[in-house]
Amino acid sequence: MKMLLATSVALASLAFLGACGSRPGYIEPGGPESIVTPGEVDIQDIKKAAAVMLDSLFETGVLGRAKNQPAQLVIGEIKNDTSSRFDLGELTYRMREQLVNSGKALTATPDEVKRRMFFDPTYLPDYTLTGKITYIKRQAGRIRQTTYTFSLTLTDPSTGMEVWTKTDDLTKQGTKSGIGF
């Protein structure tokens, strides 16, 4: 009888604990319920950086000053100089989507531009987009802090001069990963 009672209590406890666990479900990508990792670049960080960069590109009007309209843009090299591994396409595709769909720019890869230049050696795109993602890591006791800096530059290939540049900093602090901003 005692054995039966103990088993029932154990099963009830397990069922209770199971009910308290996190159930799988959908959340808004990059939304406030996302996991925040102090030492890594998260999806919400990439989405924020892309938004800040696009805000600046549209606000300054640099795309409207290009010879061609819509401006012709080559997405060049963007270096990830951080210890966090992620696909840089997460940043560039988001930016390309908005640039092309807004009608303000046409984008191409360096390979596509090389192919075009093979047939038309005088061809030059209006701008080349390049950039770098860097980080500074610090620790005080158990608190870890990482500042990620996203830097992007638009260069006019005909002059080699930078026509637009923007940096966006993001500092994450914590002892371990958590949920929410």
Partner: peptide, 9 residues
């Protein structure tokens, strides 16, 4: 619709 529309801390 826009990729600029995202949650920003």
């Amino acid at each position: 619709p826009s990729t600029q529309s995202t949650w920003i801390p």
